[in-house]
C-alpha cells in the first residue's frame, strides 16, 4: 500500500448561507496504521469532518492532502427507501468499484455471513431493521479492503456480536497499513478501539485528554436521572450510577 496518511491543515468549513462555521481551523494527521476516534456532541461538526475525509465535502479554507484512492465510507444512518436487496445493492456498489459480478458476490456473501445479517440477504433493504441495515452499510465499505475507513457512529444499532466483528474489522484495516477514523458520542468506545482520540467542541478539535479524567459525584433527584443521563452521554461523559 502506498498510502501514508491523511492530513488536514487549518481546515475550516462554513456551509453556504450559514453564519456559523461548522469546523474552525482543524489540523489533524491520520497516519497509516492509526485508529482515530472523534467524539463530540451532536452538531459539533463530526459528520462534516468525516464527509471531508471521504471526499464528499470540500473545505472553505485550509488544505486536505493524502486522501487514498480506496476509501470505505459508512454514513451515520442508512435511509430506508431502497428497494434493492442487500445482495443486489452490494453487487452494484462492487461493480461501480470495478469488481466483477462474481467477485463482488463472493465477497458480499462472505461479509454478510461474518456480520451475521439476519432477515435475509435477498429481501428489500427497506424492510431490514436498523441494526441489519447498518450491517449492509458496513459491508459496502469493506467490499474492497479500504486504505482509509471512515465510520460515522458505527456502533449505534449494532448487536453485540456485530460490535465484536466491527472491532476486528477496524483492527485488521489498521494492521494491513490502512487508517480508520470513526466518531461516537460516547468516549468509552473510542478508548477501547482507538489509538488516538480527539474531541470536537463547536467545530474546534482538541486532543482527547484520556489521562486527565476527573470523576465527579453528583446527586440528582431520581425523577431527573434519565434526562441528565442522556445529556451527559451526548457530551461524551461516562456515567456510573
Amino acid at each position: 500500500m502506498s498510502f501514508r496518511g491523511v492530513s488536514f491543515s487549518g481546515v475550516s468549513k462554513r456551509y453556504r448561507g450559514r453564519r456559523r462555521a461548522v469546523l474552525t481551523d482543524v489540523t489533524l494527521h491520520v497516519r497509516s496504521g492509526e485508529v482515530v476516534s472523534l467524539h463530540g456532541a451532536n452538531g459539533s461538526g463530526k459528520s462534516t469532518l468525516l464527509r471531508m475525509m471521504a471526499g464528499l465535502s470540500t473545505p472553505s479554507s485550509g488544505v486536505i492532502s493524502g486522501r487514498p484512492e480506496i476509501i470505505g465510507y459508512v454514513p451515520d444512518r442508512f435511509p430506508p427507501g431502497e428497494r434493492l436487496s442487500a445482495t443486489e445493492y452490494l453487487a452494484h456498489m462492487g461493480r461501480i468499484r470495478g469488481l466483477s459480478t462474481a467477485a463482488v458476490r463472493a465477497r458480499a456473501a462472505e461479509l454478510l455471513d461474518r456480520l451475521a445479517l439476519v432477515g435475509g440477504a435477498h429481501v428489500p433493504l427497506r424492510t431490514l431493521s436498523k441494526g441489519n441495515a447498518q450491517k449492509v452499510t458496513l459491508a459496502q465499505a469493506l467490499l474492497v479492503p479500504p486504505e482509509l475507513l471512515v465510520l460515522d457512529e458505527p456502533w449505534s444499532g449494532l448487536d453485540a456480536s456485530a460490535h465484536q466483528v466491527l472491532g476486528e474489522v477496524i483492527a485488521e484495516t489498521a494492521a494491513t497499513g490502512g487508517a480508520v477514523v470513526f466518531t461516537d458520542h460516547r468516549e468509552s468506545i473510542g478508548q477501547t478501539h482507538a489509538t488516538t482520540g480527539y474531541a470536537l467542541v463547536d467545530g474546534r478539535l482538541s486532543a482527547a485528554a484520556a489521562a486527565s479524567v476527573v470523576s465527579v459525584t453528583i446527586e440528582v433527584p431520581a425523577a431527573d436521572y434519565d434526562g441528565l443521563l442522556i445529556q451527559a452521554r451526548d457530551r461524551g461523559w461516562r456515567v456510573r450510577r
Binding site: R51, A54, G55, L56, E69, I71, G72, Y73, P75, R77, F78, P79, G81, E82, M93, I96, R97, T137, Q140
Partner: peptide, 16 residues
Amino acid sequence: EDPVHRAVTIVHAGRS
C-alpha cells in the same frame, strides 16, 4: 436515490 445513498455511491465512484 436518497442523498445519503448518493454519498455512498459517490465514494465508490470516486467523483460526484
